[in-house]
Each structure stands twice: as structure tokens, then as C-alpha cells.
Design a protein around this nucleic acid. Structure first.
Lengths: 168, 168
DNA sequence: GCCGTTCTTGCGAATAGTCGCAGGAGCGAC
DNA sequence: GTCGCTCCTGCGACTATTCGCAAGAACGGC
């Protein structure tokens, strides 16, 4: 790593020292008129690019570093990050919601019959986003959609089965 | 409703009598290989066309008619109906999920800043549904989408405010 | 009509997430 | 450096939802 210059990125942020990626976030929070706190920095660092984490996973990662942190704070902070556009929040159904750093936008198709999850490129969703902006001026935060339904295979299965018993 | 013929739809369904709209549901359940129970019929009747109801609302409507019914049953039955395509389930954020009879498909844009909800015709969402089917053979159950984001007004407000403090 | 199989339900406990409040901390002003 | 205003956090209670299990009900077969 060529860190000759980057290494001195220490900086006072209120009452504690931040460095590297932390400094970046601190900057961003301040720019958005938000306060910079230890909790927020640690929670952001707990998020890993490309990984879907539940609020509980994140709590588990944060707790050792900041023992007094509370679950409510984790939820509230994640909500804040989401509103700032830093992370995406997705309900994959059933269990807990998933949070993820917003690097690349992608989406999931989830089959209610077999549970299979299919990745979908944002290109398919972008037109909807554009249409909503054109028509309503609405800036849709569709960052990580989970769409439920039936996959190709299960849809055919269901159709076949209906062909037998259903006389409507 | 032209019910000249549909009106005599009384019918035995297991151990109890069903009539009118109930008979219709009984039929549908049976066709789908599901059992017909008093709970299911009452819960379906509790749903009102065009009304968004929470699981709790539905429980409150059902309880007087079927005192021993349990919340779990309500949730499980609603889940079943949703999978059968009878109702839509939507998370409007924050509080409880909303359930609604599937008459006409419509969607909502919800502003995270001011809370305003904008109705959206399914025509805007249909292309996405079609694209998913074409590309993946996936039958998307997008019946009642809630899309979060920023409404026209709030988006402009936020932009204006950023123009002041942010120097990045 | 009765029986057995299998699906549903009620129950209670567990998990996920939300909310109001009071004390503590961040940050701008002096 | 310290003061005060406001926002943020921890806390505990509360709501929403899920889950496993054992008793009960639906329905096909006789």
C-alpha cells in the first residue's frame, strides 16, 4: 500500500480519533448535518461490502468494540444510514431484514414455493425508477429490491397440478 | 353485481353451512387442494374490498364471530391467502403490514421525509413484471408495492439544503 | 355414518423491531 | 477552555410476527 501520505489521515472528531475510512464517514455525516459519534462510526465499520447482514449480525460485530451499545441504537443508526443513502435495507421475507453497503445496486427474485433466490441486475429495475421520476418527480430509493413470486420451474409445476384438479 | 344465478350458492362445506361469497371461497380453497375451515371463511369475509387492513384489524373483526381464534391462525391464514393470490400483503413501513383483497392492482410511493403517500397505477409497474417473466420466467407477485423514497417537494428541499453546507 | 390420515389450529414462548423518556455527548459560540 | 442548545443514546416496556408442539377438525374411503 502506498501510504506515505494517506497514513497521516488522523483527525479529531469531537472527542475521539478517527482514521482512514472513518474519516470519510465523519465527513459525510457532518456534511449531512448529522453528528459524528463513536456508535455511528463503529456501526459503519461493521458493515462489509458485498455482505448481507441482519441487524443482529451487526449488533454482534459492534458489541465487542462498544460494549454499552444498545440494539435500539443499531436500528436507529441503520435507519439513518439508509436515509443518507449509505446502505440498503431489504426484507428477504420471514426472518430479519438485511442491510448492505451500497456499492452496486442489485435485486433478488425469491420463489415462494422453493425458496430459490435469483440475482437481478439493476438494469431491469432502472426503467421503473426513471418512470417514477418522470411522472411524479419521485426519487425512488429502490436500492435492493426483494421481489417474491414463483420461479420458472415452480410456476410450471403449479400450472400442471391445477390442470388436474381444477375444473373452473 | 348481477347475482340472479349466483345467489342460490348455498352448500355444505365439511361441518358447517356456507353461502354466497363464502361458497366461492370454499370452492377456491378446495380447488387449490386446501381444506375449508370456519376460520378461513370468516377471515376472508373480514377483508373488505378497497380497504387496507392490518393483521390486528382483521383479528379484531374475526374475534367476535369466532372467539377462540388465535392470532397465529390469522397470520397463517393471511399468508395462505396471499400465496393463493387472493390478497396482497404490503409493508407500508414502521407499523404493521397491510392486507387487502386483490381487486385492482395499485401501488404506493411513500416519501420518507414527509410521509406523503402517492397512488401509482399498475401500468408503471407492469413492464417490470413482464421483463422478469421474459428474462427469467419468474412470475412476480408484485401486487401491491410500497416504494420508499423522496417526493418531488422534499427532494428539492434536500437538494437546496445540501447546496449550502456541503463543499465536497 | 365411522375411521384413519393428514392438515389446521390454539397455545405459549421466542424473536424482531419500535417507542418515549431522561441523561449524556457533540459542536458552535464566546 | 467552557457553556448551552440540541441531538443521540441507553433503557425498558411494548407491539408485531414467527415457531414448535400436541390436540382437534376436514375429508376420502369403506
Amino acid at each position: 500500500m502506498g501510504e506515505t501520505r494517506a497514513k497521516r489521515a488522523d483527525e479529531r472528531a469531537g472527542d475521539f480519533v478517527v482514521s482512514g475510512r472513518r474519516a470519510e464517514l465523519a465527513e459525510r455525516l457532518r456534511a449531512a448535518g448529522q453528528r459524528v459519534t463513536a456508535q455511528r462510526l463503529v456501526i459503519l465499520e461493521a458493515l462489509v461490502p458485498g455482505l448481507h447482514l441482519s441487524a443482529d449480525d451487526i449488533y454482534a460485530r459492534v458489541a465487542p468494540l462498544l460494549p454499552a451499545v444498545n440494539r435500539s441504537t443499531v436500528y436507529r443508526t441503520l435507519e439513518l444510514f439508509r436515509d443518507l443513502g449509505l446502505i440498503s435495507e431489504t426484507d428477504l421475507g420471514g426472518g430479519a431484514r438485511q442491510f448492505e453497503l451500497l456499492d452496486d445496486r442489485h435485486h433478488h427474485l425469491i420463489c415462494r414455493a422453493c425458496g430459490e433466490a435469483i440475482d437481478v441486475d439493476d438494469a431491469l429495475v432502472a426503467p421503473l425508477r426513471a418512470a417514477l421520476r418522470d411522472r411524479y418527480g419521485f426519487v425512488a430509493g429502490i436500492d435492493h429490491l426483494a421481489i417474491f413470486g414463483m420461479c420458472d420451474y415452480c410456476a410450471h409445476e403449479a400450472e400442471r397440478r391445477e390442470g388436474l384438479g381444477d375444473t373452473e
